[in-house]
Write a protein that binds this DNA or RNA. Structure first.
Lengths: 337, 337
DNA sequence: ACGCATCGTCGATACGCATCGATGAATGAC
DNA sequence: GTCATTCATCGATGCGTATCGACGATGCGT
């Protein structure tokens, strides 16, 4: 492997000059820059990351902390991971995977060993054991999700309250007076992620404002639970029923149950779900969805992190950013007359 | 951040002694070891990764190269990622995410900058553009998957041929003489991953050996395609039909189609699918499955990598390891009489 | 009691880059 | 033509660890 010294030798300059050509932190004449760049090209020189980290006190690596929970929809987490990784590359950073089986100790480790410059935490719970650690780490930390107490932390998430509010508002506009919200599956509820509460709160706020009724019904991954919830919903309304099912797994079950009862979404009943546009279009009846914009959330998380890193921010920052959600009307909801 | 020099000072020894206590590469008396360990504890010392990499020419990081293909079942990839990450930790290594949007250049980058000691490549295609690069990298590379030409490469994968063979053998034993194999979905077929061919070859070999007929029918993510394939299967057999559907998405569609035609798996028809035990048990009718053992494949991939790293292997290694698959009989297949 | 091997520890150096102060060349003002 | 100034480059040093050779202390045999 060639070093910057080799490049310097080949270009007939000092090693420090090579360094300055690369960093641009001091003016370099056009002539020597060309020479150095040619030498770099010819030797296929690439700076050694370890040495760079040691001398520059910056690893250009961001740690991504993911809990692996088999019950959860891992596919959707992958979307975050994917966008985070490629956005990080755009900012000239790499992503180190930090799994949660090390627990909070893992955070201490990667920061203590200075393997990364900062941490992005995903799947934040209301009372997350990682939070006290995160607050005391002397590197920037960005949370995707919002804990009960976000003080002293930098958070970003989709605006679930807006999502809940808009969903109810839309269904009310379409003429529904009773709207059934089906909870996330128990595995999610048990994790006490607070987007559930925020979403539900949004639905309640809208209901109050518009004078409609919102029912909160149990969700589950088994047909029986959803079937029961549908029963309750039907019993509670004289008009056409409306469902909001933010959990993707539950959507599928709900769709089949409605189908087996002869209820056609968009005709006899309204259904709002949550899915990527691609997936929503693929449904037998294209699904009206709340887009929680995971890609945008991921992008911004990385952007915030990189800004914090540039500002050499040592002081305890605090911020809370909500990404607006988008409702896309497709065929599964009634049209307002 | 405390350094090993600080530890040395606190323990009243030389810095090199601290290093030897940590690495164990030279004998240290019980007394000084205790002193040093106490100092480490007290200062919460952690070795600096950059310096360690620079001096020791080893980063203790493994690059994991994943293509993000939205059409594919990303959830199942997560299972690999998760196990790879925690296994790597057991071997005292970390995982760096290398996304494929940089293409083969990304491999050059992470190796050239010496960000990682080795690479694990996932989702290998028959003629993968990353292979020529992989062969010429001067770090160990482990492939999960098998390209058309595995020469000069270290590969590991599930034994898909065995999986195909056993599936057919099992259904033949249960009395089926015509067995329909439904292809993976087009998105997978188009990638030219060669496990498809290996699986199909296994089914053909078994068919030949046992004198039964194997039909290869088109797969897809839409109901129509599968429905047609089921039609063809039913038309071609006088006895009870048998299906092998290795693609998870297709399994679901198949199940519903069979249901809507009044065919009950395990009674009127046999179905073998592929899923984790947990998922298989959750089905309305517990599914007889081929377990492709992603966790075991992942574990071994990391193990092989770490062995290559320990042996300081520079010479071009070559090996091919197949992880035996396991068929678990549940209720979706007929019992042999 | 003396030389000799062994064990445990120390000091010095290298790893490859970033950065700071210094130096020489080129430029402009008078 | 001289001096002050700016610009481009060089040399030296530090970052924190691993490793090698060396050296003093200890135990052994005779």
């Amino acid at each position: 492997m060639p070093t910057s010294k080799d490049v310097a030798l080949a270009a007939g300059v000092a090693q420090s000059t090579v360094s300055y050509v690369l960093s641009g932190k001091r003016p370099i004449s056009e002539k020597t820059r060309k020479k150095v760049e040619a030498a770099i090209e010819q030797l296929t020189y690439q700076p050694n990351a370890g040495a760079r980290a040691l001398a520059g006190r910056r690893t250009h690596v961001i740690g991504l902390v993911i809990p692996f929970i088999p019950e959860l929809e891992m596919g959707s987490i992958m979307e975050f991971v994917s966008v985070i990784a490629s956005t990080a590359r755009q900012f000239d950073h790499d992503i180190l995977l930090v799994t949660d089986d090390e627990g909070a100790a893992g955070l201490h480790r990667v920061v203590g060993q200075q393997i990364c410059d900062g941490l992005i935490l995903m799947q934040i719970e209301d009372e997350d054991e990682r939070l006290p650690v995160a607050r005391n780490l002397n590197v920037p930390v960005v949370l995707i999700g919002i804990p009960r107490d976000p003080s002293g932390l930098v958070c970003i998430d989709a605006d679930f309250e807006m999502a809940g509010e808009h969903s109810v508002r839309d269904l009310a506009t379409a003429g529904h007076s009773v709207i059934s919200v089906i909870n996330w599956q128990p595995a999610v509820m048990d994790r006490h992620v607070n987007y559930v509460d925020r979403f539900m709160h949004g639905t309640d706020v809208a209901a109050e404002a518009l004078g409609v009724t919102v029912l909160h019904l149990p969700g589950g991954t088994d047909r029986a639970t959803i079937s029961e919830s549908v029963d309750k919903a039907l019993a509670s309304t004289t008009g056409k029923p409306a469902f909001i099912a933010p959990d993707r797994t539950i959507q599928d079950i709900l769709r089949r149950i409605l189908g087996s009862r002869g209820l056609t979404p968009g005709v006899d009943v309204s259904v709002i779900g949550s899915a990527s546009p691609t997936l929503a279009e693929l449904q037998p009846i294209p699904l009206t969805t709340i887009d929680l914009r995971p890609a945008e959330v991921s992008r911004r998380a990385v952007k915030i992190m990189c800004e914090l890193l540039e500002n050499d921010s040592q002081g305890p920052h605090e911020s809370l950013e909500l990404v607006p959600t988008v409702i896309t009307h497709r065929s599964s909801t009634l049209r307002p007359q």
